[in-house]
Design a protein around this nucleic acid. Structure first.
Lengths: 350, 350
DNA sequence: ATACTGATTGCACACGTGTGCAATCGCAAC
DNA sequence: GTTGCGATTGCACACGTGTGCAATCAGTAT
């Protein structure tokens, strides 16, 4: 009665009620027929299915979600949509979610904890079945608001060291740093620097730890000036690359022959400075990055770096989420990085 | 009666019914109070709002969507989540959508028209209010299935030349090509090549058109061998960069002094080949790309290219979508590219 | 005192789907 | 013929929210 939706008529949004009317049965029967319930006669099922196809019926997932108390969606929060790191994580999540028939909400937090919390709350309003947060900056300040959210949360590469109650997928940061510094050591360097970023709390601390660890085991006493952690207050709105560009000279002055950079962007910045100052890489200075972003492969010289299994991290996070959704126990997960040797590292000149 | 949801009790999912019971009013009153309706006494409104806060009430957007026949969501289909081009488009869409209070579904089509159609249908099942498709490959084969989808669709940088019924946001491809080739001409080149990709139907044809156009206006008769369009059949699974790497020699043999590449990836590949063969860029060969992806800035030499206003395209697409959602007339939109001169172009040797 | 007005509230239905339970029917066993 | 059983179907409610309409109540004008 509401809208004309005859079998041959104008194709509008047809509901199971419309189909029921056209078939001369109740909407319950239609519902059962379309869901292949055994509680419906085979011939009527065929008839209803044919009718549904003819009328262009497309089930309403919203209504289904309301009834089922499960939406078949997950929310993904990333700090930036344009950062290739998160793009790969996103792709990994999408792959597994798509395979499981789940749809994915995405939103950016722009590295702002308040905004991050708002996005999570929006997702919760939409009744997503789970939330995956990449590089979360949520601190204990948000505990109260988080407790109102009754949704499983999985965190990828958490930036803070709080909220341990989340399930976490993380990279073995210490191991990654060991690979990088170990490689430099093996090649022959002894005066190795570290250029770190203070606004990356957790990962920076761990990478610094790995750096020190390797040097200590090699019975080297690193000059404190070799490890430069740019404090958060001095970073401000600056891009990582700019940091690398502007801060490399400090380390050069300290007399290092190789620098392990917090990430590839920092390393690329450092590389720019070398090019500008006529410092040969790797002839006079070796550089190692972290992440293996696309750019690392195409700069000159191509960058030696530590590859994070980014897509794998997304896939793993989503797999853990699926476990949680199926009421199976969730678990934490630590993934192994991989050293990618390219052309930005070589033995020291002497 | 279903679950215990007392004011001070365990905070579970509270519905307006639970609040109504706790406040001793009907759920209608609660609904009105929370929506600031004038049809409710101010004091009871205050009381109900306080109670809602205390009980940790979070409105159910699913139920709201069902009732309102509008979900407050849009779906974004991209061919690849890891391509930085789409990442920027996504960010633009997210920005405007977020500002309008809409949430964004995202899924990848992996350049497969069938998959693209499936994703759109999934979005429709979830009753998104609109769909934005980046680099759509939908042909007329899908017309029938598309007609069942009663959802506004906006297309960004459509790849095919069919389905003109969609609202489209596109780049002025011809103008972009004119900028690139015009720049080479102005710098002094006369034997200018074009390295195009046959699997990008529409944009490749337009860029080729712009290339020919500029040369014709300059009264140059280009050797047909200077324009190399790699046919789709020969591309297969190859990355754009690999194409550039492997196909540049063909153009060099044809005797060009400058090459306008279909995009930056192709140009980066070409640059690799030059480096490998000891061909100086821009000394012996000038290269121009298209897109201005991140890498373009960091390769050596930094790439002269045509910048697409990618985020702007996403923002525009979402703005057009908002118009359509508000029943305002939609419109097509063509955005202007911008020439970015860096160091990969210079006057020809002689 | 009565009627009218405005403010406030609840009832009942709607959105589209799924499902427990009862009802109906046909058929076979006693 | 009655009882029982399995197959099939419809009724009615649920999910959580929003809203038209009627009902109730207090206050004011007549």
């Amino acid at each position: 009665m509401t809208r004309a939706c005859e079998p041959g008529g104008p194709v509008g949004r047809a509901s199971i009620k419309d189909i029921a009317q056209a078939a001369g049965v109740s909407h319950s029967t239609v519902s059962r027929a379309l869901n292949d319930s055994t509680l419906v006669n085979e011939s009527t099922r065929e008839r209803i299915k044919a009718l549904a196809l003819e009328m262009g019926y497309i089930p309403n997932a919203v209504a289904r979600s309301l009834k089922a108390q499960r939406s078949g969606t997950v929310g993904l929060v990333v700090t930036s949509l344009t950062d290739p790191f998160f793009a790969d994580v996103m792709a990994g999540v999408d792959e597994i979610a798509g395979r499981a028939g789940l749809s994915m909400f995405v939103a950016a937090s722009h590295n702002d904890p308040d905004r991050e919390m708002e996005v999570i709350e929006t997702f919760h309003r939409r009744r997503v079945d789970g939330v995956i947060v990449a590089a979360s900056r949520l601190s204990n300040r948000y505990r109260e608001r988080l407790e109102r959210i009754h949704v499983p949360i999985v965190v990828v590469n958490q930036h803070t060291e709080e909220n341990p109650e989340f399930h976490a997928v993380a990279l073995d940061e210490v191991g990654g740093a060991r690979l990088a510094v170990g490689h430099l050591l093996e090649v022959g360097h002894r005066r190795i620097g570290y250029l770190g970023l203070g606004n990356r709390q957790r990962s920076n601390r761990l990478r610094l730890g790995g750096y020190r660890d390797v040097l200590r085991r090699a019975d080297l006493v690193p000059d404190p000036a070799w490890a430069l952690i740019v404090p958060e207050s001095e970073i401000g709105e600056q891009d990582d690359t700019e940091i690398g560009e502007s801060r490399l000279p400090d380390l050069l002055e300290a007399g290092v022959t190789a620098v392990f950079c917090y990430n590839d962007r920092v390393a690329v910045g450092a590389l720019q400075t070398c090019r500008a100052h006529g410092i040969a890489v790797p002839g006079e200075l070796s550089l190692v990055g972290f992440d293996d972003i696309d750019v690392a492969r195409w700069v000159d010289p191509p960058l030696t770096t530590v590859r994070q299994p980014r897509a794998e991290m997304g896939r793993t996070a989503m797999s853990v989420m699926l476990d949680l959704l199926e009421e199976r126990p969730g678990h934490d997960c630590m993934l192994a990085p991989e050293l990618v040797v390219r052309a930005s590292t070589a033995p020291p000149r002497r």
